[in-house]
Amino acid sequence: MIKIFLPYKIRETLDVPTEIEAQGSNLRNLIDNIEGMYPGVKDHLVDEGKLRPGMSAVIDGKTTRLGLIHKLDNVSEIHFLPSIAGGRK
């Protein structure tokens, strides 16, 4: 099982615990599984078949650049976080 941490505002809005566990072969699949447990989460994370603009997924310390197709082999934790404008406004 992969430990999942959702952003504060999603946890507050949908009453999700700080840390949850889920599985998935890739990020898309994992989010579908989380949606099964906590309906409404997917809408916060996914838009038009992609990670929602402004949302990033940090997989074992690395922010994925592949998005939903990122394969989850031997992953222990994923943090979904608001993405950070590193340069551009």
Binding site: P53, G54, S56, T63, S83, I84, A85, G86
Partner: peptide, 10 residues
């Protein structure tokens, strides 16, 4: 419209 992901916002 929110633009892009992480490189852009606003």
């Amino acid at each position: 419209v929110v633009r892009g992901n992480s490189e852009e916002s606003g």
